[in-house]
């Protein structure tokens, strides 16, 4: 593990500080990165994309997990959860590609609307950032719902009864009981979704298109195209930094759990 996981990351860190031509230690790679518009833009595009993906995933996943945990009858609970997460076992790439067929300007949606209403419309949706957000959000919803469900199912039902006995309503139930008690699942799910969104390559390429690349796309084209390893390493390290920042809530969560023990 150390050899194949830690060493490579440090090697990349070292590469990112080396001058591509002379091999001298330098910060120039980082300055160069932020001075070029295409890199700079893609950096913030990546952050924006992940931010939207998390927000939408959480907004959708919370009611879903609530639904499976508290509304669906006990008999069907596992089934409902299974239905939602079974596509985890399908190729992510192929699913993203299928969306291409559905959403493209000659795809199923426009065909269907044309058949029903007779109008020719253009969706202008595929190959935009919105399409990437859409594709990754569907994935995030699955992941966060699963983790939220795991937290929610452990909530003591007597707490909910106490809430309604004391005159509370649905709103106070969610705000005072369910939300605080399922927070760990929510945080873990969001962090994992963020990490996947920030580093994903397939969805931004297939749905977002190549004209407005995210970091992962740039990294790959830098390596396979220009063989500029140092620049690619710089991008990789920037990605690591983003992720370390994203993991801070996770660490505070671990600390909290320890204190409670």
């Amino acid at each position: 593990m150390t050899f194949f996981f830690i060493f490579p990351i440090f090697h990349t860190l070292r590469l990112s500080f080396l001058d591509p031509n002379t091999g001298v230690f330098t910060f120039n790679n980082y300055f160069a990165f932020f001075s070029k518009d295409i890199f700079y833009d893609s950096f913030f595009r990546t952050l924006k994309l992940s931010f939207f993906v998390i927000s939408f995933s959480v907004i959708l996943a919370f009611p879903l997990a609530y639904f499976i945990c508290f509304v669906v009858k006990k008999k069907f609970r596992t089934l409902a959860l299974l239905i939602l997460v079974a596509p985890f076992w399908t190729s992510f790439t192929i699913r993203a590609f299928s969306w291409q067929l559905i959403l493209s300007d000659k795809g199923l949606v426009t065909w269907f609307i044309n058949k029903v209403t007779g109008y020719e419309i253009k969706l202008n949706f595929l190959y935009t950032m919105n399409a990437s957000i859409f594709g990754l959000t569907l994935f995030g919803v699955m992941l966060i719902t699963l983790l939220l469900f795991n937290s929610m199912i452990t909530i003591d039902k007597r707490l909910l009864e106490a809430n309604s006995d004391l005159g509370g309503n649905k709103f106070t139930e969610i705000k005072n009981i369910i939300l605080p008690l399922s927070l760990p699942g929510l945080i873990i799910g969001s962090v994992l979704t963020f990490i996947i969104a920030v580093g994903d390559y397939a969805v931004p390429t297939l749905l977002g298109g190549g004209f407005k690349p995210v970091l992962a796309q740039l990294m790959l084209s830098t390596i396979k195209g220009t063989f500029d390893l140092n620049t690619a390493a710089t991008m990789a390290i920037l990605l690591v930094i983003i992720i370390i920042i994203a993991c801070i809530p996770l660490l505070s969560l671990i600390k909290q759990v320890r204190l409670e023990k």
Binding site: M1, I9, H11, L192, A216, I223, V240
Partner: peptide
């Protein structure tokens, strides 16, 4: 315990890229 789980929070692209850098070097 935490160390064993760290690869979970590293995007696959980073695992791939840094391994490639390291092993080819």
């Amino acid at each position: 315990n935490i160390f064993f789980l760290t690869p979970l929070v590293v995007p696959l692209i980073l695992i791939g890229i840094s391994l490639r850098f390291y092993l080819t070097s």
